[in-house]
Design a binder for these strands. Structure first.
Lengths: 203, 203
DNA sequence: AAATTTACTGAACAGTGTTCATTTTTCAAA
DNA sequence: TTTGAAAAATGAACACTGTTCAGTAAATTT
């Protein structure tokens, strides 16, 4: 029965087509201008067609978000290489923030905007699992080697993540006034904060 | 010539009416459902009338944001009372996060959504000045007394703020999985993170 | 070749921010 | 007190948005 499988494959290809169009539109024009109608136009289909493959926009955005997390995972695999756990923790922090600063539209979709989370009920969200597990695994190792000044791995992971997310999201949303950073540029200032934080948590 | 002054006063009263309607709508229905049309209906005017007092929605949201910051400033004045700078820093952290967790819609408008920032060109934003200055003043004092493990007040202020903002905004946007916090509730976990952070930065 | 299932779309609905010609109200001068 | 100009308010429209659904076109089965 190759035909039902082909149909299934074609269905997936169409979904990919939609997601690819959406993500490229995201990167080029940003979230605000990425409408169902624009995506439909880009893939040369009617807007209504998209609703044959996705129940609503939130569900579509959830899949785009998954794609975006794939990119973060790729960067993590490439950059997080150190064997020493604390060194690796430092790599995780720096890579995460680097990704956020250099991919603001993707980061927005992954961590700032609400929309994709409407598609899924609380704690069924698995898009961020891989990156989060890398962090949890790493802090757990750091803790067992007594290399960081935390007592609980979960508190450690959430704290470190929050610090990184705070820096990125305040920057993306233009809440950091130049008065607060002095003469250097914002990215340099953010890196300074990470430097200090890494020293702060080091035992 | 009391008449031009009365006109000016009436103009301001109308603006206040619009902002009050907007902010109550924000608190009751959230950002998504706060439309110009809904606000107009609430104050019993035509939508077009609002455009006689505000150039566009972003400019209106900027004023609503100002109101929200006023509420934060009130809470700060009430709760930030310690004379000792480090103790005061701890109060600032806890009060800020408390405010964010308990006023998610206001916090959203102040620090997460982009919209109100479109109304103003970068670094003309003064809505957050009072709270930020409280923080900067406090860390500067802490530094001069050598009570915190930072070398630069700006790095210290941005770091502390980012930690608080990270915790609040990840929570508001439902990015914190229960898996990461264990059995206790999210607010407790967030408080644990603050406890640890306060210990971390203490010299 | 006909019938049936699948894929797709045009048109509509209800909503959004925003503009503008037109009407209503206000208020000083005749 | 009536008149005329200035100010305030609005109805209707424009160009969007997400979404639905009846109807058309294509593919597959009988």
């Amino acid at each position: 029965m190759g035909i039902t499988e082909r149909k299934e494959r074609e269905k997936q290809e169409m979904r990919d087509k939609i997601i690819d169009a959406a993500i490229s539109m995201f990167l080029e024009e940003g979230y605000e201008k990425t409408s169902i109608r624009n995506i439909a136009e880009k893939i040369e289909y009617s807007p209504a067609t998209i609703y044959l493959y996705y129940k609503d926009k939130d569900e579509l955005l959830y899949d785009v978000q998954k794609q975006a997390f794939g990119k973060l995972d790729d960067v993590f695999r490439e950059k997080i290489t150190a064997a020493d756990p604390f060194e690796r923790l430092e790599q995780i922090c720096r890579t995460y923030v680097w990704f956020g600063i250099n991919n603001p539209e993707l980061y927005d979709l992954m961590f700032i905007i609400k929309a994709p989370m409407n598609a899924i009920d609380d704690n069924e969200w698995h898009n961020g699992d891989q990156a989060l597990n890398a962090l949890i695994g790493c802090v757990t190792e750091c803790l067992s080697k007594q290399e960081i000044r935390f007592s609980d791995p979960r508190v450690a992971a959430l704290s470190i993540w929050s610090m990184g997310h705070g820096l990125i999201s305040l920057n993306i949303r233009c809440r950091i006034k130049e008065e607060l950073i002095g003469d250097i540029d914002k990215e340099k200032m953010i890196n300074k904060c990470i430097n200090e934080y890494v020293q702060l948590i080091k035992k």
